[in-house]
């Protein structure tokens, strides 16, 4: 209605075109209204004369935009994001593998350390046992030697004692004969004295 009213005001301007006269008229009318600068024209966004052109160019530009987006830009950004994802995943994999390798190395080190420690203990124990055995052997050797010496010494003491005891007998006989001679003034045969001493010694 808006358009028809405007159209009615400006009918005389152009009517030459045989087909599609109305759009041509409307176009002329709005052109005049805009130039005139007052409110009789159609509000520009509702100006139907521009619709066909706008639709056509919108279809062309938006269609082209859609094709470029779906064929070029979006696959490209998608591949960038995907490759970044892959890179990050790969780096994380590498990192976790390196970590597990490091862990394995640490475990191996710990194991070797424990083995070395055990071996050291064993060596120390062996050395201690050997030293102990050697000391014991030496001690027994020394003890036997000392025992031998003691035995020899005891033998010698016994010998000396027996010899001394023998001497004691001789001295006793001498003393006894001297005592008897003093007492009785006569010599007693030696065999009798010896017998008497022996009897008293026992």
């Amino acid at each position: 209605m808006f358009v028809t009213a405007a159209y009615a005001q400006s009918t005389p301007t152009e009517g030459a075109e045989s087909h599609g006269a109305a759009p041509a008229e409307v176009h002329t009318e709005t052109g005049v209204a805009h130039e005139g600068g007052h409110g009789s024209g159609v509000f520009p966004p509702f100006d139907q004369s521009t619709f066909a052109s706008q639709l056509l160019w919108l279809a062309i530009t938006f269609g082209l935009f859609y094709i470029l987006m779906s064929k070029v830009v979006l696959p490209r950004i998608g591949s960038i994001l995907e490759s970044r994802q892959d890179t990050i995943a790969r780096d994380l994999d590498d990192a976790s593998r390196a970590k597990s390798e490091a862990d394995a190395a640490v475990a191996a080190y710990e194991q070797e350390l424990a083995a070395a420690r055990a071996k050291a203990n064993q060596i120390a124990n062996e050395a201690r046992e050997a030293a102990k055995a050697k000391a014991a052997a030496e001690r027994t050797a020394i003890e036997t030697e000392l025992n031998g010496k003691i035995a020899a010494a005891e033998a010698r003491i016994a010998e000396i004692k027996s010899r001394a005891l023998a001497d004691v007998g001789a001295i006793a006989e001498e003393t006894a004969s001297a005592v008897v001679e003093q007492l009785i003034g006569a010599r007693v045969p030696e065999t009798e004295i010896a017998a008497a001493v022996k009897a008293s010694a026992n």
């Binding site: 075109e17 087909h19 599609g20 006269a21 759009p23 041509a24 176009h27 004369s49 521009t50 066909a52 052109s53 706008q54 056509l56 160019w57 919108l58 062309i60 530009t61 938006f62």
Partner: peptide
Amino acid sequence: GGLDLSFTNASLFM
């Protein structure tokens, strides 16, 4: 064919 398909400033900015 009677349709105004002109390249306008709207088209330019599209």
